[in-house]
Amino acid sequence: MPAAAARPISSTATERHRLKKAAWGHKTEYRLRVRAQIVLHAARGLPNARIAELVGVHVDTVRTWRSRFAELGMPGLADRKRTGRPPSFTPLQAAQVKALACQLPAETGTPLSRWTTPELAREAVKRGIAPFLSASTVRRWLARDALKPWQHRSWIFITDPHFRAKAARVLDLYARTWNGEPLDADEFVVSADEKTSIQARCRCHPTLAPGKARAMRVNHTYGRGGALAYLAAYDVHHAKVFGRTEPRTGIDPFMALVAQVMSQEPYASAKRVFWIVDNGSSHRGKKAAERLAAAFPNSVLVHTPVHASWLNQVEIFFSVVQRKVVSPNGFTGLSEVRDRLRAFEDRYNATAQPFQWKFTASDLDDLLARLDQHTVDHPEEASVGLAA
């Protein structure tokens, strides 16, 4: 008896693209990759026996997936639903465990600061939710709803009554406007702050360079070689950094940084130079603004709101310094720290581009609207946050 003819395969351009991506993708499951390769070969008109030889499967496997694609298209390549083993737990039990995970342990009388999957499994058994329960089962349940009760993030309510006005001034300066008027070419915006207590950790053994299948190795034991403060001023629109190191922070070191910048062109002869700072003790309040204006009449001190140092762009530069210069900390002394910071400034200024700051005044309004809504929905949390 002659063999049945192989079913012809036709596919759209979209289906061919998806099949090729599945057939040759590095992250595709093996079983899906084989099925996609079978269909692609079949679309070229190859017989089943030849496809089986090329893909490395039995001819019946080729016949099965070729037929399913001919009947159902791409959905036909997915596994069919199977009855499988009956579930050991009901949906209600899973929901009860998820509800437990969404409660603080202290609310349930459990002496824990946060839940872990073993503790949740133990508590569920203790409460009679299930006669037995493993931590891996709880982990799978929580993963379906992206619940991670063992993680935490800190937060704080806005306490500055003038937060919106202060933050808007900073954001306007980043957009090169001041009091609704665009800044002139001879007006500059400088973001400044201090990075305190950069230590010189003298490792007891030298750091080993990375090698084949081996990360860089840093000795855990170290001796303290002192600490210094790093003060930096960042020209927001020209991506130029001015830095200096001092034994400690304070009014005098900060004014020295200002003098370092304002004594150079184009800042010395600029129409105005706006200095964006946080509310640290070195430049806090009206006295700091008056002190700066007295020393440099073309300078204007602009404060970020309280607890809003994230609005200060120099903090982004400090994060770059922490990643590329300070960590992992291994210096022979403070002189090496100073030299490394100075050399990095030169290297950074040679290629730096302004940060792509995307948070605008409109985004600020949206953020404050969400916080206001949260305050309305949870007034008890708002009162606690404001009291703190």
Rank of each mutant, 00 (worst) to 15 (best):
P8G: 00
I9Y: 04
R18I: 06
V34D: 12
H41S: 09
G45N: 04
N48D: 15
I51A: 06
G56W: 07
G56K: 10
T64D: 06
W65L: 01
L72H: 15
M74H: 02
T90P: 03
A94N: 09
L100I: 03
P105M: 02
G109F: 13
L112W: 04
P131E: 13
R139D: 02
L142M: 05
R144G: 05
P149H: 06
H152D: 10
F163C: 05
K166M: 02
D172L: 01
R176Q: 14
L183S: 09
E187M: 07
F188Y: 15
A192N: 04
E194G: 07
E194I: 13
A200C: 13
C204R: 12
T207K: 09
L208P: 00
Y222S: 06
Y222G: 08
R224G: 07
G225R: 06
Y230P: 01
V236Q: 00
H238C: 08
D278I: 02
G280Y: 04
P305R: 03
V321M: 08
Q322T: 13
R323Q: 12
K324P: 03
V325W: 06
N329H: 05
F331G: 03
V337N: 09
D339G: 08
Q356F: 07
W357R: 09
T360K: 06
S362W: 09
D377K: 11
P379G: 14
V384H: 10
A387S: 14
